[in-house]
């Protein structure tokens, strides 16, 4: 079985996001960039399926600028067999990402595609669903447990009401939720081995993808700062204050 894993690079989860002074975007220069945590979980799940003998080939793919190569090497160091880098200097939106991944599916013919449920930069939560529709294959989103048997997958999904277990035919798209697994640490010997693993670069324009980017961002702004609290002496003062502010 071959698994294709989406592996996006984002501003590190622990970095405090700063908006550029001119409001044209967020600061990414000199900021730690890491794998989208949900994509790390996706890769971990693929690697576990390979370790169980269910999968044989794990391919990580990213769509991003030229310097994403180091990011893909991290995916290879974690354990992927191969990497595909779709090179573009433009930030793309979910529909374009889904159309691009579909091209990779046509090329690679995977039995399973695992993506993060969303990327933590734009929090769109759309690419997996769009890809399943374009590919015309089943989808199991927000997975917290995946069991493969033969040509079907039993997937436990985290839904608003609790947990839902569904069975889908493969090939299919699965998107990961936080509790699916805990990604492994990257071993130094594997980082060294990753240097010689195959990494293919494909310019986005050579894939003939029709752009689906229809949203235009007009400005970025930081959320308003919480105003400072005030201390009150007693209940009477509190009530009086609430009244003057028109809150009661």
């Amino acid at each position: 079985m071959k698994i294709l894993v989406g592996y996006k690079r984002v501003v590190d989860y622990n970095v405090r996001i700063q908006v550029k002074p001119d409001g044209s975007g967020v600061v990414t220069e000199g900021v730690k960039l890491s794998a989208n945590p949900f994509d790390e979980i996706a890769l971990e799940e693929a690697l576990r399926l390979r370790e169980k003998g269910i999968a044989t080939d794990v391919v990580v793919a990213t769509i991003g600028p030229a310097d994403c190569q180091a990011h893909l090497r991290n995916g290879l160091a974690m354990g992927a067999n191969r990497a595909i880098h779709v090179v573009t200097s433009e930030a793309i939106q979910p529909l374009t990402a889904a159309r691009t991944l579909l091209k990779l599916i046509e090329k690679e013919q995977p039995d399973l595609v695992i993506l993060g449920k969303q990327a933590i930069d734009d929090d769109c939560n759309q690419t997996g669903q769009m890809l399943a529709a374009l590919w015309n294959r089943p989808q199991a989103t927000f997975a917290s447990k995946v069991e493969i048997s033969g040509s079907t997958a039993k997937v436990t999904r985290e839904v608003d009401a609790g947990l839902e277990t569904i069975e889908i035919d493969l090939p299919a798209v699965i998107t990961t939720d936080l509790r699916l697994n805990e990604p492994r640490f990257t071993k130094l010997p594997d980082i060294m081995k990753a240097k010689s693993k195959p990494l293919e670069s494909i310019p986005l324009e050579s894939l003939g993808v029709e752009s689906g980017d229809s949203l235009k961002t007009t400005a970025y702004a930081a959320p308003p700062k919480r105003s400072k609290g005030v201390m009150v002496k007693d209940v009477a003062e509190l009530v009086a204050l609430l009244k003057t502010k028109g809150l009661v």
Binding site: D12, Y13, N14, S34, N74, F185, T186, K187, L188
Partner: peptide
């Protein structure tokens, strides 16, 4: 005999 390297801030914190 072995070693790991943090790949993200989250991993750095776990280590």
């Amino acid at each position: 005999s072995d070693g790991v390297l943090s790949q993200s801030e989250a991993q750095a914190r776990s280590l």
